[in-house]
């Protein structure tokens, strides 16, 4: 198996993928940098602030197993006179 292709040393697939993204991010235009900052800020707000402070999955956090969750919902669904 040759270590060369077109006179250059072949890089392994992971390195090529890494360099592809690395060069892509490095050569990004100014608006791209702004967008990434917005994306990161948005992900921070969504996953850190909103998820942890306000959006606990009610049934997952209240109960340890599906049986208890079923019983709870069954109680709620049949809470009629």
């Amino acid at each position: 198996m040759s270590l060369y292709k077109n006179g250059q040393v072949k890089q392994n697939i992971f390195k090529r993928v890494f360099l592809f993204y690395y060069n892509g991010f490095r050569n990004m235009p100014e608006y791209g940098v702004k967008l990434w900052l917005i994306i990161l800020l948005k992900l921070f707000v969504i996953f850190i602030i909103l998820k942890f402070l306000f959006f606990n999955d009610t049934l997952k956090t209240k109960f340890d197993n599906d049986k208890d969750r079923s019983e709870f919902v069954l109680d709620k669904l049949t809470d009629i006179k």
Partner: peptide, 16 residues
């Protein structure tokens, strides 16, 4: 965020 809302605000629905 819609999925968060399912789990938090609409848990009976999500389970059902």
């Amino acid at each position: 965020i819609l999925e968060f809302e399912f789990g938090t605000n609409w848990s009976n629905y999500s389970w059902f």
